[in-house]
């Protein structure tokens, strides 16, 4: 801070010097320099006296009493500082407090529900074939070599119904008597059974396990509830 100058000429005290001098905020050596300057500079002495008057008036400004109490009402929800937690641990969600600190009963019920849900998913996937090893479809019945041939639909002479090529004429085709080709017996349409049926469950050990777990958890939950209600 410059003791002198700053708008009042280099030979006069700066504004900040005057202000700090009034507050006694200058160092001892600075105070001595200012005091010795004031002894010889009537301008600065008058300036300081006027400033002292201003500060005196301001400090005499009365304190206005508070018009009412500003006490805060008792909050419905108490604001309590959160306990310190590591930076990697997320802040708990208020609505999930019951889930973050479950009771034994809640835990058992949640496990039973989870086991039942898993059982339902596995069973549905097993039956529908989504879960499990896919197999080739099992065909039942005899493959009809010429499904288009029938009493009302004789094979045409211009195309081999099997190879799709024109029939090769026999050497004596022109003189040979026409012999009717043997007509295949009409067969039943092709029948295909689905691979996965309820009686062909491939994941039955898993499903059985889940069923047992669900039953055990449900039973445990009932026991817990009875003990809680009796105590």
């Amino acid at each position: 801070m410059r003791l002198f100058g700053e708008g009042f000429g280099d030979r006069h005290c700066s504004l900040e010097t005057v202000s700090s001098f009034l507050d006694g905020a200058l160092r001892e050596r600075e105070m001595q320099r200012v005091e010795s300057h004031l002894a010889s500079c009537t301008d600065c002495a008058q300036h300081i006296e006027e400033m002292r008057s201003v500060v005196g008036v301001l400090r005499m400004m009365p304190t206005v009493p508070a018009p009412r109490s500003f006490a805060i009402p008792a909050p419905a929800r108490v604001f309590v500082a959160e306990p310190a937690r590591p930076w990697w641990q997320p802040a708990p969600i208020a609505g999930l407090r019951a889930l973050t600190m479950p009771s034994p009963m809640t835990s058992v019920r949640a496990m039973a529900a989870a086991a039942a849900l898993a059982l339902a998913v596995v069973f549905a996937g097993d039956v529908s074939g989504i879960i499990g090893t896919p197999e080739a479809p099992v065909q039942v019945g005899i493959q009809d070599p010429n499904p288009l041939v029938g009493p009302g639909n004789p094979p045409g002479p211009e195309q081999n119904p099997i190879l799709g090529e024109p029939p090769v004429p026999a050497p004596d085709a022109g003189n040979a008597p026409v012999v009717d080709a043997p007509v295949a017996e009409p067969t039943a349409p092709e029948a295909t059974l689905p691979v996965h049926s309820w009686y062909r469950l491939e994941l039955w050990p898993l499903e059985l396990g889940l069923l047992a777990l669900t039953a055990a958890m449900a039973a445990f939950s009932i026991i817990l509830r009875r003990r809680t209600s009796s105590s």
Partner: peptide
């Protein structure tokens, strides 16, 4: 330092007004 500076200017303004 900023407080001192602002205070001195404010006091000077009040001195000029009064």
């Amino acid at each position: 330092g900023t407080v001192k500076s602002r205070l001195s200017r404010a006091r000077e303004a009040m001195r000029a007004a009064l």
